[in-house]
Write a protein that binds this DNA or RNA. Structure first.
Lengths: 252, 252
DNA sequence: GCTCCTGCCTGCCGCTACGTGAGAGTCAAC
DNA sequence: GTTGACTCTCACGTAGCGGCAGGCAGGAGC
């Protein structure tokens, strides 16, 4: 019962190169060679190959497989547990990805065209997801962030357009107020600050006064946010910041 | 709004090296450089990076991402569909593996010790999985193969031992019959051929006469199967082959 | 002006698990 | 004795970076 590389390859469903490789790294060396140097695999080699392929299927790197197979003292149960954890994690990731892609497909089928490009188009230059990676780093484990993500995922293009319209309407009103010379702690400014909080609560996540003042601080601290508001009207970032704080204090 | 590599890396949650790499392969080149040669990323670059990371998350290779993003005529829906298929296939594989590993863990907890080594021990030299890879290539998309896999996955060590015992009993009887000189198309031989079919049906999958004659042909065509039967008794492969065909014809 | 620290630059080698030849020898068949 | 299939050993190529080395750049502190 001796087999050549080609035969083993066929039987095991791997390539000859793979067997050469396993020989090279000492994972599976044939038990003998012919006088011409041809590899000769026997049944024991085939069994070992089976083991190798089994662990490989489970995602073990070849080096570890070598260790597992060659070390009779190794605890197979421990390996299984670890592998089970790894697998379930990968499984979850994959499932999430499938869900994400199904969502994307659904959106594109409905002609809502919520591909990322479209979303950028809808969002204009103030994309809630523009700084998503950073947001995730900062707030990835907060309830608000998860809530926001959950809601955002369901929004249609129309929802986004309505959102944008409401935002722009609010923007026009606060710009007009600021231009009128009303101070940032005037009742009118505080009312618009309150409306700002409610817009966030309605569209993204329950925004408390505390969270809102945090946002306000960031509008000044993070130049990208500052730029966004300054771009609407010079001085707006600071004006909004003060109005939000004044409103939060008066409601406390 | 210009950012250095380090800033972009932090914001996007990738490493500087990754950005260098994306620049190298032309996937994401910063829109400018400082006089000192520092990369300068602007908001548009960040948006592109978002797209890149989005597709990367979905498992697209970088080269394809380049094509998708740079080619406005490319159909994102088609890409998504293809990716969805790939992912679901991988997902199914992973799920099967998790099931398998959970089964193995269960077994090891019960001290049944169904580690692969154990299974080889139980199977002796005629492991139903010995040629699994090839079997999958040949029959991977048949109902019989799936059915067999489903059943096999549930078998306990005791089941395997009973299976082996039944097989050996049948083996002894057919060897005895052949030794007695009864022709392969005798009623007794045909009866044992019938029993062979029922053994397969009981332990692995519903085996029709047609499928059984296919198996019989393979016992002669594939030297490994031939060797298995010839190892039990010289001439058995051909004898069984003829008996199976005779039985199938008489039942048709 | 000098030093220190941090961040940036460009190579370039390394990793996994093989794929894919090149060039040469081997084996069984016709 | 010649073909054709199979095998051998280099040895470079792949994807997606990680991680050095050696050398500028730029701001802070002395």
């Amino acid at each position: 019962m001796a087999y050549t590389v080609g035969q083993v390859a066929k039987v095991a469903g791997v390539t000859v190169r793979t067997l050469h490789h396993y020989d090279e790294i000492g994972l599976l060396s044939p038990s003998g060679r012919t006088s011409a140097g041809y590899r000769r695999y026997d049944d024991a080699d085939l069994q070992r190959l089976q083991l190798v392929l089994y662990y490989r299927e489970l995602g073990f790197p070849l080096e570890e497989i070598t260790a597992i197979i060659d070390d009779p003292a190794a605890d197979p149960a421990a390996h299984l547990r670890r592998q089970h954890e790894l697998l379930t994690v990968r499984l979850k990731r994959l499932q999430e990805m499938v869900t994400a892609i199904e969502f994307a497909m659904e959106a594109s089928k409905m002609n809502i065209q919520l591909t990322p490009e479209e979303r950028f188009e809808v969002f204009g230059d103030f994309d809630p997801e523009e700084h998503q990676a950073e947001a995730e780093q900062r707030w990835g484990d907060t309830d608000a962030y998860r809530e926001s993500n959950r809601r955002v995922a369901r929004y249609s293009k129309d929802d986004w357009l309505r959102n944008k319209a409401e935002n722009e309407d609010w923007g026009r009103r606060i710009v007009a107020l600021m231009a009128s010379g009303a101070p940032a702690d005037s009742p009118e400014a505080m009312e618009l600050a309150e409306e700002h909080r409610q817009l966030i609560s309605r569209w993204f996540y329950e925004c408390s006064y505390e969270m809102q003042t945090g946002l306000a601080d960031m509008y000044l601290a993070d130049e990208r946010f500052t730029a966004h508001y300054e771009n609407i009207a010079p001085g707006l970032a600071a004006y909004l910041h003060e109005a939000i704080h004044a409103n939060a204090i008066s409601r406390a």
